[in-house]
Amino acid sequence: MRRFLHESALSIAFGVLFVGALAGQAFAGWQQFNAQQVADGLGEVTLGRYLTSADFAVDVAENWQSEWLQFSLFILMTVWLVQKGSPESKELDRAGAESMKDQKIGRYARRDSPAWAKTGDWRTTVFSNSLILVMGTLFLASWLIQSIAGWAAFNQDRLQQQQDPIGWGSYLVNADFWARTLQNWQSEFLAVGTMVVFSVYLRQRGSPESKPVGEPHTNTGVEG
């Protein structure tokens, strides 16, 4: 058990942070929702009712989709695009999908390589892109859920104001959907860009996200 906690400390720590933050969001979101209910002259709802509301679902989903979009783009764009000096980038002359040998695929696979790296057929193609396939699917699924939950929440507000509900297609071109979407995307793109650029000149001793402290600024693709 101690060995498990040590060997998985990073994923456990982020899992605990996630659950704590989500619980905090649920509680604060419930308080905020009820404050609005009172302001609108409506009754307060229980926490259970809030957690099964479209308002809670859309708030969670809109943040989830943007995180997976961020990593999907980061994974894909770093295959072809480089940044001189950044540990997040490959060396400048390695842009692209790289050779079978470099990637240890097919007959270049090692004895302890994953089974699907060795076959050299469609399984290798699938496994070669499995990270972007899963992250991309999670992005699309959570963005779809955001659109449905956001649509339901939007129509509930309209009904309370004696306005006709709109269709899902209309919601997809509505400012509410795009304001929720883009306010999340802009911060993700800024954060990734910041990481790529700042890691050229700044260091964190001991972090694999940084170059070694004494590594020259001009060296690319070196992780500490």
Binding site: F4, S11, G15, A54, V60, A61, I145, A149, A152, Q156
Partner: peptide, 30 residues
């Protein structure tokens, strides 16, 4: 090795459960 598999499945199944929950909640309110 078993620990790595456990964390992989915890994340993957946890996310799938979260997405399924939000999907059901969303569709119920449509």
């Amino acid at each position: 090795v078993a620990g790595m598999r456990v964390m992989f499945l915890v994340y993957l199944l946890g996310i799938a459960a979260g997405l399924a929950y939000m999907f059901v909640v969303a569709v119920r309110h449509v």
